[in-house]
Design a protein around this nucleic acid. Structure first.
Length: 722
DNA sequence: TTGTTCCAGCTTTTT
DNA sequence: GCTGGAACAA
């Protein structure tokens, strides 16, 4: 037993937290104060010193990345694999519970996990079926509403019908959505948490089993937990005081998606005997950066209180650059990065952080122009790509024929002559008989009142899936996926697709087969569940982390939100302007403004050695020139820490952009403006405009019956009415 | 089916 | 001002 390895690398506060006797513990861990280290060493301590079996420990994180990091650091410290230790994300662990107890949780064994885009599509279909206008009921809003309800642990049946018409309609949609999910065996992300909570709450034997198993429970980023996540933790631990949570109220930046900073206070109330430990020594940034961050965050009310410090000196002052416009801002940042790289700095140590994704473009352009390698975070993820989703949809249908979303996705992909009309018929039957699209399709074929062509096309699809299911029986997972990719015709489809994009898609499909191979190899599958279902869940739950060229030395571009938890030697915090950061939508609400301030705090504390703050005096936004005021956060940082950069003279003023609009050419053809014409389909109308020449010649006509239309003269059969 | 035109929307994001 | 998706013409 090597205790020194566990406690020697710790400072006093950290050691205190790690070695405390089992108790409810709240570790307030400031940015860069070694919070992961405390978690990992705490677990190691419990195993090696207190003799707890890894089997008895649960550790919960928010991201897969954090979970992986924790596991690998723990295995390194303990020098043994820690397989029986449950480390995972809230969603991953909830999924695991539901797979194990699918029947008890009233789920089919082959239930499928939907990601947000699947969910959105399902909601769109549902609204359509309920004859609700998407204008009045924006699918995004409905989705947000449903998820928010679930995050609070509220089911449709918990809400009474008494609200205003809007509430009542929302409730009806929520209820219909629940029905649809249940019927088709689909589970969205919020449902994973809610259902796992209900599983424990309503089944005392299951609850007791896990309560006895998990003698110690650890939670990372506790300030980001929402209501249902905390309720789930409460069930597992009750009042046993075996809950060890690490968090930082000053870094709570996910309130807008249901995170409850109040859970920190709730935890304190519910565990009167808890210990509170503050980690305030920072091992990341210079004294100047920390003092700036401390002063800024002190403007927030109701903090738990914490002041970061370091013993490694003040370092350089923070630089502030007032750019002429957003072009100049990008130019300045890229020049500084080039200077950094020329002096031997690694580009991967540099980050450009912005409030909203839309800001990345100007930097990308300048980086590209100077041949500086860069990487933008937050793009399309591997498992989100259309070709991958299509392939997975076939897999999902193989496993669960009731998966309507997948059915719609691939019933005519690649095209096999099943048109909108046929699909509409299928939908109709499905709605009338309350059955899945698949079952409706089967019924439609059997009825036989379908045109021969449509019937054959549909039959071929049904047959294809049956064949896939038969032929993949007993094959290894990756062979299944491989066969699906080939036999479905997807591979062929993308091979024939127009040169550029098709090739990439073919490669992605091959990569998918490869991912399946790897998944097969390193999943121990202790629960012996359907490997295909597990792979599909993995694809939904771990959509990220398959981004290419991670190893190239490149500048990192990302939003402030995705920068949380990371650190860089050189950080540019750009777009420090009122209306942008803090964002316009936040300035009128004290609570949201405080969250913006915390976001700024997060941004500042990412910097290890040098921080640049920039703003533009003029910025083009949404096609409009604006002259924003510098962000209030700049004023909240004491001037003594800031040095203004003055390098005026080579301002890159935009050349006055006078772009001649393409003139609409007036053709002197048969038609004149004001001419009365008639069209065999659209009826009578009046010519309003003309453009183009020869085969491209078009006319705009205002038809009495159908309104405004552009028609190609080469095709449209028009008659002049004199 | 495919290409085009039109039109709304426009923080932040993981799972 | 740009972009993604829907609607529409051919």
């Amino acid at each position: 037993m090597d205790i020194t390895k566990i406690i020697d690398p710790l400072n006093d506060a950290q050691r205190h937290a790690v070695t405390a006797a089992s108790t409810a513990m709240l570790v307030l861990a400031g940015a860069g104060s070694g919070k992961t280290r405390v978690l990992v060493h705490r677990i190691a301590w419990q195993i090696q010193v207190e003799g707890l079996s890894p089997h008895n420990i649960l550790a919960v994180t928010f991201t897969n990345k954090a979970a992986r990091e924790m596991r690998s650091r723990l295995e390194e410290l303990l020098a043994i694999p820690a397989q029986t230790l449950w480390i995972g994300t809230f969603h991953g662990l909830a999924h695991r519970l539901l797979r194990r107890h699918a029947q008890t949780a009233k789920l089919p064994a082959t239930f499928q996990v939907m990601d947000s885009s699947d969910q959105l599509r399902l909601i769109k279909r549902l609204l359509n079926r309920l004859n609700l206008d998407e204008e009045k009921w924006p699918p995004k809003q409905v989705q947000w509403h449903i998820n928010a309800q679930k995050d609070e642990g509220i089911r449709a049946r918990h809400t009474s019908e008494t609200g205003d018409p809007y509430q009542r309609q929302m409730l009806a949609v929520y209820r219909a959505y629940e029905d649809l999910c249940d019927r088709s065996g689909m589970v969205d992300f919020a449902e994973l948490l809610l259902r796992a909570h209900e599983l424990l709450r309503d089944n005392p034997d299951v609850l007791e089993f896990y309560q006895q198993r998990f003698l110690q429970v650890h939670v990372d980023e506790f300030q980001d937990t929402n209501t249902i996540q905390y309720a789930w933790l409460r069930l597992l631990t009750q009042d046993k005081d075996n809950l060890f949570v690490v968090g930082d109220d000053d870094q709570s930046i996910y309130g807008w998606r249901g995170a409850k900073i109040e859970n920190l206070y709730k935890f304190q109330r519910q565990h009167p005997n808890h210990q509170l430990i503050r980690l305030e020594q920072n091992y990341r940034s210079t004294g100047t950066i920390l003092k700036a961050a401390n002063t800024l965050i002190a403007n927030n009310d109701g903090r738990m209180g914490k002041e970061l410090w370091t013993d490694s000196g003040d370092g350089e002052p923070i630089s502030l650059y007032a750019a002429f416009n957003e072009q100049d801002e990008a130019y300045f940042v890229v020049e500084r990065i080039r200077a950094w790289a020329n002096e031997g700095g690694a580009r991967s140590d540099v980050a450009i952080l912005y409030r909203s994704n839309a800001q990345s473009r100007q930097f990308e352009e300048k980086l590209m122009a100077t041949n500086t390698p860069y990487r933008v975070y937050g793009g399309l993820r591997f498992f989100d790509r259309a070709e991958i989703k299509n392939a997975l949809a076939y897999c999902r249908l193989m496993s669960n024929r009731n998966d309507d979303a997948s059915f719609e996705r691939v019933v005519n992909t690649p095209t096999r002559g099943i048109g909108a009309k046929t699909i509409d018929d299928i939908r109709m039957i499905a709605r009338d008989q309350e059955i899945s699209l698949w079952a409706a399709a089967v019924a439609l074929v059997n009825q036989g009142n379908l045109s021969a062509r449509a019937s054959n096309a549909l039959k071929s699809f049904l047959l294809l899936l049956k064949q896939l299911a038969d032929e993949t029986e007993g094959l290894a997972l990756y062979e299944k996926v491989k066969l699906v990719v080939e036999k479905s015709g997807l591979l062929e489809l993308y091979k024939q697709a127009k040169a550029d994009k098709g090739e990439e898609k073919v490669e992605n499909l091959e990569e998918l087969v490869n991912a399946a191979r790897l998944f097969d190899a390193d999943t121990d599958n202790e629960d012996n569940l359907g490997e295909l279902d597990l792979f599909l869940a993995y694809a939904a739950l771990e959509a990220g982390d398959m981004q290419a060229d991670e190893f190239e030395d490149c500048v990192q571009l990302m939003t402030l939100h995705s920068a949380k938890g990371l650190e860089f030697k050189l950080v540019f915090l750009v777009g420090m302007e009122e209306g942008l950061f803090p964002s316009q939508q936040s300035v009128d609400d004290a609570g949201r403004l405080e969250e913006e301030r915390r976001l700024c705090y997060v941004g500042i504390t990412r910097a290890m050695r040098k921080l640049y703050l920039t703003y533009a005096e003029s910025r083009r936004l949404y096609g409009r020139e604006s002259y924003p005021r510098p962000s209030r956060f700049l004023r909240e940082i004491p001037a003594e820490f800031i040095q203004e950069v003055r390098i005026r003279g080579n301002i890159s003023r935009p050349a006055a952009t006078i772009q001649p609009k393409p003139k609409t050419t007036m053709t002197t053809g048969t038609y004149k403006i004001g001419q009365k014409v008639s069209h065999e389909k659209f009826g009578e109308g009046i010519v309003l405009q003309m453009e183009g020449q020869g085969a491209q010649e078009r006319v705009q006509i205002n038809f009495k019956q159908v309104g405004m239309k552009w028609l190609m003269l080469a095709y449209a059969k028009l008659n002049i009415i004199s």
